[in-house]
Amino acid sequence: MIHITKELAAIFFTAVLTQNFVLAKFLGICPFLGVSKKLHTAVGMSLAVIFVMALATCATYPINKYLLETNGLTFLQTLVFILVIAALVQLVEIALKRFLKPLYRSLGIYLPLITTNCAVLGVVLLNVTRQYTFAQAMVNSVGGGAGFLLAMVLFAGVRSRMEHDDIPKALRGLPSTLIAASLVALSFLGLGGVVEKIFA
């Protein structure tokens, strides 16, 4: 039992810190650069990503294990996964709109953006290539989403500080944002090896 818990904790913290989806694996860069200007939109987007990542893993894991693998159809993974994610996001949006109005108002606007977010398809594909069990896959997805949240929140803070800085003309806008992202990624590099040491 302790062994399994340790293993899951290692997967979680690796996904959050050392193998951060945004800053180390470059998944979901578009929302990271586009929706990180204000803290509350950054948090809303990240929560929606965590939610969809967990749901997508829940839905694609059995489909892959009992439908694709048993019938030798693993080459259809990309196609099936993206369609499942797209359908799922639509369903969630409809369900939230109908039954959970407050949650829809806070997360709903971000949902259509998430279908084409490569972090969601990325986490599902990573779970398959690493041959995770269901529990490991779920932990990896939630951890990846939490890592996304962490990176978004930190970066929103950095960007709000940069807003009134006097930046050379050519670097204004996107270039300075990317260089700031580079420095945030550098700080995450310092965490390398920490998770392995603690949970090994």
Partner: peptide, 20 residues
Amino acid sequence: PPGGFFVYGLLIAVANRISQ
């Protein structure tokens, strides 16, 4: 990864400078 963000930022800055 930090190098990736950095180089990309600088390349866009160069492209911006040329188009300016």
